[in-house]
C-alpha cells in the first residue's frame, strides 16, 4: 500500500507564501495530477514529497509513516524531472542501473531488472547510447525507466512531457498511463496542460496561488467547475455575472451565485426541452481541428460556442441567431 497524505502543508520563502494549507489524500495505485499555472506551487509539492525541499509546516505521510525526518534517499520516492536529469557520463543501461547499484543489489539481479525495464520503455537498441545521442522522447523514456526500476512507492512526474512535440507527447501520455496501470503504482503528475491532465488522471487537483482550488475526477472538474479560475483554466468556459446571465437568458436565476459559467459546447443551435433561448449576433468562426469555435455578441457581452466540425451549422458573420442552452448547463460559481 502506498497511500500519500499531505496535511496542512505550508511553504514560505521569506515573505512569500508558496503553499498555504495543502491537504491531499492520494490512494494506493492512483494516478493524480496537480494542474495549475506556472508558479502556483505544484512543483514545490513534489519537492516536499520527495524530501528535496523542506515544508515550513504540516505533515507528509507515505504509507502512514511521517516523512519529516526521512532523507530523500530513504523515502522510496522516484522522480522524473522536466529536463530528465539523465547522467551525461553514463549510457542508457548505466543510467537505469544506477539506482539498483546504489541499493547494492546483486549484479545478476541488476542486469535482469534493467534489461526488463529497458524493454518495457522500448529502448533495447539504445542501451549502449549516451543521453546526448538520444532524442527528447527517448531521453524521457530513459528517465522514466530509471525511476521505475527501483520500484518506488510513489513516482513523481514534474512536467516530464512538456519539452516534447505534440505528437510524441500524446503518444507518451497514453504509454505512461498504460505503464502505471500495469505496475499499479501511485503516480503524481505535475502539468499546466489541462488536456494532458484529463487524459491520464484518475483524479485532478487544480491549484492556484499556493492553494487547491478544486479536486475531483477529470469529469467532475470539467463539468462542474466551482470557481471562475477553474472554469477558465480547465476549459474555455463563458463566464457571466448574474446581471449578464439574466439579461442573456431572459429570466431570474434560481441558484444565487456571484458568477455563472456555460461550456461553449453546451450552447446549441437546436432547442431542447425547457432550454433557455439566447438571441445573439454571430462574429468570427475559427476552425480548431475537429471543432469550430464561433464568437457571438449579445447585450455587450461576448461568448463562444463550439460545435463538432461535421455537425456544425454555418453562421454568417453579423447575422442574429437564436441559440439555446439547457438550465443544467448553467453552472453557478462560488
Amino acid at each position: 500500500m502506498s497511500k500519500v497524505v499531505l496535511k496542512d502543508v505550508h511553504k514560505q520563502y521569506k515573505d512569500a507564501h508558496v503553499l498555504s494549507g495543502i491537504d491531499m489524500n492520494i490512494e494506493d495505485g492512483e494516478f493524480v495530477t496537480l494542474l495549475g499555472p506556472s508558479g502556483c506551487g505544484k512543483s514545490t509539492i513534489l519537492r516536499i514529497l520527495s524530501g528535496l525541499t523542506e515544508a515550513t509546516g504540516g505533515n507528509v505521510m507515505i504509507d502512514g509513516k511521517d516523512m519529516k525526518k526521512v532523507p530523500p534517499k530513504n523515502r522510496q520516492v522516484g522522480m522524473v524531472f522536466q529536463s530528465y536529469a539523465l547522467f551525461p557520463n553514463m549510457t542508457v543501461y548505466e543510467n537505469v542501473a544506477f539506482g539498483l547499484k546504489m541499493r547494492k543489489q546483486p549484479v545478476n539481479e541488476i542486469a535482469e531488472h534493467v534489461e526488463k525495464m529497458i524493454n518495457l520503455v522500448g529502448l533495447k537498441e539504445k542501451k549502449e547510447a549516451f543521453p546526448h545521442e538520444l532524442s527528447g522522447g527517448q531521453q524521457q523514456r530513459v528517465a522514466l525507466a530509471r525511476s521505475l526500476v527501483v520500484r518506488p512507492k510513489v513516482l513523481l512526474l514534474d512536467e516530464p512531457l512538456s519539452a516534447l512535440d505534440a505528437q510524441i507527447r500524446k503518444h507518451l501520455q497514453v504509454e505512461l498511463r498504460t505503464i502505471q496501470r500495469e505496475l499499479k503504482m501511485t503516480m503524481i503528475l505535475v502539468t499546466h496542460d489541462q488536456e494532458e491532465a484529463m487524459t491520464v488522471s484518475d483524479r485532478i487537483f487544480v491549484m492556484n496561488q499556493g492553494k487547491i482550488a478544486q479536486e475531483g475526477t477529470p469529469f467532475e472538474i470539467y463539468t462542474q467547475p466551482k470557481t471562475e479560475f477553474v472554469a477558465n483554466f480547465i476549459g474555455r468556459y463563458n463566464v457571466f455575472t448574474k446581471e449578464q446571465i439574466e439579461n442573456l437568458l431572459g429570466g431570474k436565476m434560481t441558484i444565487l451565485a456571484a458568477k455563472y459559467a456555460i461550456r461553449p459546447e453546451s450552447i446549441q443551435f437546436q432547442p431542447q426541452t425547457s432550454s433557455y433561448p439566447i438571441r445573439a449576433i454571430a462574429g468570427d468562426s475559427i476552425m480548431n481541428g475537429n471543432v469550430i469555435r464561433t464568437t457571438f455578441h449579445a447585450d455587450n457581452k461576448q461568448f463562444t460556442m463550439e460545435q463538432l466540425h461535421h455537425q456544425s451549422s454555418a453562421f454568417e458573420k453579423g447575422t442574429e441567431y437564436q441559440l439555446f442552452v439547457e438550465p443544467k448547463d448553467v453552472i453557478a460559481l462560488s
Binding site: 520527495s50 528535496l52 534517499k73 524531472f81 544506477f98 539506482g99 525511476s147
Partner: peptide, 10 residues
C-alpha cells in the same frame, strides 16, 4: 538536478 536525481535513486 543531477544531484537531486541521484539522491532520489538512493
Amino acid at each position: 538536478q543531477l544531484m537531486d536525481a541521484a539522491e532520489l535513486l538512493g
